[in-house]
Lab assay of single mutants.
Amino acid sequence: KEFRPGDKVVLPPYGVGVVAGIAQRSVSGVSRAYYQVDFPGSRSKAYVPVEAPHSVGLRKAL
């Protein structure tokens, strides 16, 4: 896996977040693995496909 729990990442347009782990989510009846990204200071979460994280701009924070 490219990202691990605890990694600081950037996800446009949300900003800097932390990978909380990998979650299985069902979309249109198909279960897939997603990185769960939490954003400190907020209750917001984002789910990014493990198979294509760069397709939505997910990258490691510098």
Rank of each mutant, 00 (worst) to 15 (best):
G29N: 04
P13V: 06
R25K: 09
V19C: 06
R4E: 10
G15S: 02
P5N: 06
V18G: 00
L58Q: 03
A61H: 12
S31G: 06
S31H: 09
L11W: 06
K60W: 05
V18P: 00
L62I: 14
G6E: 02
G15Q: 02
V27P: 04
A46I: 12
S44K: 13
A61Q: 08
V48D: 02
R25C: 15
S55K: 12
A46Y: 08
A46T: 06
V48K: 00
V37S: 01
S28H: 13
V48I: 08
S28P: 02
E2P: 09
A46P: 00
G15K: 03
D7W: 10
S31W: 13
K8W: 15
G41M: 09
K8S: 09
V48G: 00
R59V: 12
F39G: 00
G15T: 01
R59Q: 09
P53K: 04
K45Q: 11
P40I: 10
H54S: 10
S31T: 14
G17H: 04
I22L: 05
P53N: 05
G21T: 07
V19Y: 03
K45P: 15
Y14R: 04
V48C: 05
V16I: 12
S55G: 07
E2I: 12
K60S: 09
S55D: 11
P12Y: 11
A33H: 11
S26F: 12
Q24P: 04
P49V: 03
V50G: 01
D38T: 12
Y14K: 03
V18M: 07
A46W: 05
E2C: 13
R4K: 12
G29L: 02
Y14G: 01
P40H: 09
V10D: 04
V48A: 06
R4Q: 12
D38A: 11
A33Y: 13
D38M: 12
H54I: 06
P40C: 14
A23G: 05
A23S: 11
G41Y: 10
P12I: 05
G21P: 00
Y14C: 13
L11H: 03
Y35S: 00
A23E: 12
R43P: 13
G17I: 02
G29K: 03
A23R: 13
Y34N: 02
P13Q: 06
A46N: 02
Y34G: 02
V18A: 02
L62Q: 13
A20F: 06
R25M: 13
P40R: 05
P12T: 04
G15H: 02
G6L: 03
V48M: 03
P5Q: 09
P53H: 07
K45V: 15
G15W: 05
S44C: 15
P13G: 15
I22F: 04
V50M: 05
Y34L: 01
Q36L: 11
Y34D: 04
Y35M: 03
H54W: 09
L11P: 03
G29C: 04
G6V: 01
V30G: 06
P13W: 07
A23N: 06
